[in-house]
Amino acid sequence: MNVTHSILIIAVGCIVTAITRFLPFLIFRKGAKTPAIIEYLGKVLPFAIMGMLVVYCLKDVTLLSAPYGIPELLGCAAVALLHIWKRNTLLSIGGGTVLYMILVQLVF
């Protein structure tokens, strides 16, 4: 572990995260009307971004060699089904994660 480089990476992460949160307040300071396209994107982007993040998390899955992405597939399916069934965020996250951990540690 390179301590200086690690601290720099974290510092950059902190600064950029803060920028993403402060920027709208800096751009739209005084009563200016938010452009319609920004309002529209603000409404629909969260849905698209969540799909993007799911794919992002699964980017390292190997489909063509063992275990063929089976733990990830079962884990995600468990999360989605638990959520459709009970709609309890913590149950869905916890249940799917425990199943996945069991699969990668004991089965595959």
């Binding site: 799911v54 699964l58 733990p71 959520h83 459709i84 996250i93 916890g94 994660t97 951990m101």
Partner: peptide
Amino acid sequence: EGIEFVLTALFVTIFTEQWL
């Protein structure tokens, strides 16, 4: 091992919630 799946599970949960 596998604890990092909580993040995937979080996003799948929100994705499902949004879908519903």
